[in-house]
Design a protein around this nucleic acid. Structure first.
Lengths: 172, 172
DNA sequence: CGACGTTTGATATAACTGATAACAATTATC
DNA sequence: GATAATTGTTATCAGTTATATCAAACGTCG
C-alpha cells in the first residue's frame, strides 16, 4: 500500500516576484494558492466536491444522491437493521434520517417494518424495486464513475488513496 | 402510516448469502460497510469531516473556520485583489462571500478599500491584526494539526495524498 | 458624447444539510 | 411497579450553497 512516485513534484515553489502594489490590477494572472495547496483539509474538500459532482452526473438517470446510494448499499449488505443502526453507521443523525427514509420509501425503494421483538423500532428493508435500482446504480457508478477515477490515478494509487482516507477517518 | 402496502415486495429476499433473519436483532455486531468502503466519494467525505473537525479544534483559540483561514491565507499571498477574485479562487460564490467578509472585517482581520482604478471593486487587505492572527493560526495548524497527519500517514504518503487530491480536483 | 451591455458588490431568498430539544410509545432496570 | 433509557418522530435553528435582482461603475461602439 505504499504509494510510489509522484512524491517529488509535490513541492512547487514558484514565488519569483515580491512586489506590492496595493492597487492598479496588480498581477492580472491567476491567484497563488500558496500554502493553501499544502493544506490537506482544503485539498480534501475540493476533491470531495468534484467527486460528488461527478457521482451525481453519472447516476442522474436514477435520481440518487451519494447519501441515498449509501443507504441502499448499507441496507442490502445489512438486512434486519433498524433506523438508528443504519443512520449512525453512516454518520447521519436519527432525526435527519427520518425525512431521508421518507423520500426513499415514497419511491418504494425501501420500506419500514415494525420489529416483532421490539415494537419501538422499524426494521428497514430493501424492496425489489430498491434492489433493482441499486443494481443499476452500482453498474453506473462502477463503469462511468470509479473507472475514470482509477484510470486517472492508476489502480494501485487509487487503492492507496482509499487506504489513507480510511486511515484518516478511523485513526486520526 | 407508511408501511401498509408493499410488505409483499419487501419479503422477497433472495440473496446468495446464507443467514437472513428479518428480525430479532440479527447480528448485534457492527454493520458491514461492504462496497461502501471502496467508494472513493464516501471515503473522501468521511476523511474530510474528520480533518475539518480536528482543524476547528486545533485553531479554536483563534475562532477561525477552515474557510476563514483559507481567506486570510489567500489575502496574504495575493495583495491587491478584489472580492470577486478572492471568492472565486476559493470556490465561494460572490453573494455568499459578502457576509463572510463582513465577519472578518468586523473583527478587524481585514478591510475593504475602494480601488482607485475601478471604483466598483473593493480591494481586500489584511490588517496588522489579521496578519498576526494568521501567523498564530499557521503555527497552530502546522504544529497541532498537519504534524499529526504527517505522522499518521508518513511524510511521502502525505505528499502523495496531496498530489492525488489536487489531481482529482483539477483533472477529473 | 451617449446608448447599451457588462462587471462589482450587495441584498433577499430559497434549498439543503446538520444539530438540538422535546415527546409518545415502548422497553429495560431495579 | 416506579423509574430510567431507547426508538422514531416533530419542530426548530444555525450554517452552507444557490439563484435572481439591483444600483453603481465601467467598457464598448456607434
Amino acid at each position: 500500500m505504499t504509494v510510489s512516485k509522484t512524491a517529488a513534484d509535490a513541492v512547487k515553489v514558484s514565488r519569483p516576484v515580491a512586489k506590492q502594489d496595493l492597487d492598479a490590477s496588480s498581477d492580472d494572472g491567476l491567484l497563488q494558492l500558496g500554502e493553501l495547496s499544502g493544506l490537506l483539509g482544503y485539498a480534501l474538500k475540493r476533491a470531495q466536491l468534484r467527486v460528488f459532482e461527478d457521482f451525481l452526473r453519472c447516476v442522474a438517470p436514477l435520481q440518487l444522491t451519494p447519501a441515498q446510494f449509501s443507504v441502499l448499499l448499507l441496507l442490502d449488505q445489512n438486512p434486519g437493521r433498524n433506523q438508528t443502526e443504519i443512520a449512525s453507521t453512516l454518520g447521519i443523525l436519527r432525526p435527519n434520517f427520518v425525512a431521508m427514509l421518507d423520500g426513499l420509501e415514497s419511491r418504494e425503494l425501501c420500506a419500514r417494518m415494525r420489529s416483532t421483538s421490539d415494537r419501538r423500532s422499524h426494521i428497514v428493508v430493501l424492496t425489489d424495486k430498491g434492489r433493482a435500482v441499486l443494481a443499476r446504480a452500482k453498474k453506473l457508478v462502477a463503469n462511468k464513475h470509479e473507472t475514470r477515477l482509477i484510470e486517472l490515478l492508476g489502480p494501485e494509487n487509487h487503492a492507496a488513496l482509499l487506504d489513507m482516507l480510511a486511515k484518516i477517518a478511523h485513526e486520526f
